[in-house]
Nucleic acid binder design. Structure first.
Lengths: 214, 214, 214, 214
DNA sequence: TATGAATGAGCATTCATTCAT
DNA sequence: CATGAATGAATGCTCATTCAT
């Protein structure tokens, strides 16, 4: 009896969250007002407060969602192939696609991954998802090492983090400067990213072993 | 006549900018009010508006300054050594030091480098400095290739950009998650960054040539 | 037919009023929201509006109730003894006890007694109860005069009102400053009130007659 | 130089406070909005915030002022006569006049006197003034006892407090029910108050000694 | 009757910006 | 040139009240 009525709540939350996501995408979360969100969602501001306690709660929900979506994308990538090389390509492809589809979500997820240690944004679930993503990538690295495709002297965790930093920086730059890149190098975003992804991969690929002395 | 009067103007602008920079560093630009800046600089708020049209103009100037400072740091790095490997190390060291000293400036510069194509932030000068930095790094890459230290099949511009993206992402992540890194891997920020820098370098170092087939 | 249906209505109103009273007691009427009341009463907010037109109506009802309760307490006091002195003591005891038990109700009743001439709070019934209380106390005074315990030159109504004002002020002060009183005079609330009650009584007791010339 | 400019600030504060006091008088402090105050004072809401940090600051200032004014009135009363009886009359007259002139201030002062132990409303100064008022009245009582006009068995502090409670209750009731009093007893406020003041005085006057046995 | 749902009208507070002097 | 003074426009958030079902 109670259940039947509670369904719509999630729909309303979803509608509001969707409107908010779109606005956040355009102007950032800070510059988006509750009024904007309410109006975009077709509700009054007071109604938004019926479904969300806070502006923060909206942001948190969006963050959590973006993290989960990212995790799904990565899971799919790892499941789609066996070789490390191929898996890496899929990871990059998924990340790129995800960024293209949900730029705000992507940015948010990255930021959260960078800062997750902060207060529990959505009951700590965001943090957990971040950990899961880390675990996913760590297993990818370990598997690649075992297969002999990746260098044996790399340490999974530092490598993983370094990769995260480098990959996210790369993708973000590719997005914000795609026009510039197109003009000065005649490459579209995808080509540039492929180039960058390759470069990063070479840093961990087995063939590079011992190649560089300090 | 005009010159003589313009000198003090620059001094006032400088004093205000310095005060603003310090505040931005601590609380971020958004959370710093014009009141804060005026007070910290020892001027009245209205006076700040005599020297800067906008809050934005202050931010832009600071951005330009941060870009210039960054350029100086990089120049010093390239001048400090001959081998590509050593130069790379110096670049990384300078970047790390710069980030440690002026985290806000660093972030700003990176963001600007990523987004500079936007409106003329300070008369287009910011853009120019960005171009200079790019040129600087391009020459570093080319020189390294000529010396045989770097792979001959890399293309300077895409590589350069990919490097920027990756490096900035790496440094930013190292900063925002230094605590987490320390706890989970027992590495301090410097060690983690060294590890990441090495990884990135291997992607362009000569020894890796042919090591990876697609 | 009408009667049978109206019974439950009173029960609902009672339940809501009870919940409201408890909340008002804790946080005051202004800080208590209709949501709070509805939730505490186990109804939906809209249902509360079925039984009460207004928040004000709830407050009014509670006021009426508090007046009635006060009247009962006073009746009991007057019935409990014959001498004026003893009756006075009982009145004071009842008032003090009532204030201790229902501070909000007490305050409300006093305020209403002071202001009742205002708009008809609950159909004028509150006013009537106030009148009854006045009559009760007037009869107490008259009886005391007849018995020779109270001064013969006092006029019942002005005395009665003056007593109300003085007594309520005394009790309210005793409550709000009980801590301060304890600290500075080493008296607890009850002792202080006894002292004050005695003081007031001396102003009307027979023995004081002629004692003061203007 | 700085001084000359700071004068107007006090004037603005004064104007705002005056407007606020008038509004508080009518609708109470809680129901008066900053908008109301600003509008009544002829300023914009933002300007009010230039001169007062908070709504609370306005309330606090008004409270302090009302306490000080009350203290002045009482000082004047004590200075105006030598006999306790006459002094008492002057105190009552001053209080009545003060209440008639500044009903809100009066109410506020009484409330503060009742609750002063709370947080420092205006730098603790409000509390101090309250203490001074208490000291003033205590000296009045002691002096009256020494002169043989007041009972020797009264204890200054409890008596003082009891008097405060009773007097304030009396005056407040006289004000809020003046119409009712007029109608039912044919007395105006002043007459009623005189009557009540006399009644209270008899409770402490020397002649009443021993008149009442328990 | 009972209520889930929705909201209009506010509210205290902030801040970048303007302008007369 | 420098500034004291003033403010319009928001902003996140609250709550009594209404209404269709």
């Amino acid at each position: 009896m109670a259940r039947r009525k509670k369904q719509p709540v999630q729909e309303h939350r979803g509608a509001i969250a969707a409107a908010a996501a779109a606005l956040f995408e355009q102007n950032g979360a800070a510059s988006t007002t509750m009024d904007d969100i309410a109006h975009a969602a077709g509700y009054s501001k007071a109604t938004v407060y019926v479904y969300f306690k806070n502006k923060d709660e909206i942001v948190s929900l969006l963050t959590l969602e973006s993290m989960r979506r990212l995790r799904e994308h990565l899971c799919r990538a790892l499941d789609g192939a066996q070789t490390a090389r191929r898996r890496y390509e899929l990871i990059c492809r998924e990340l790129t696609a995800y960024q293209a589809k949900y730029p705000f979500y992507f940015k948010t997820a990255l930021e959260k991954i960078r800062l997750e240690s902060g207060a529990a944004t959505d009951g700590g679930r965001t943090f957990s998802v971040g950990e899961e993503i880390n675990a996913l990538l760590a297993s990818f690295l370990r598997n690649g090492m075992e297969r002999g495709e990746l260098r044996r002297d790399i340490e999974p965790f530092p490598t993983l983090f370094a990769f995260w930093g480098a990959l996210s920086g790369l993708i973000l730059l590719a997005e914000s400067k795609s026009e510039y890149i197109q003009e000065t190098m005649g490459m579209d975003r995808g080509q540039f990213l492929s180039y960058g992804f390759d470069m990063l991969y070479r840093g961990v690929a087995a063939g590079s072993e011992g190649g560089v002395e300090k």
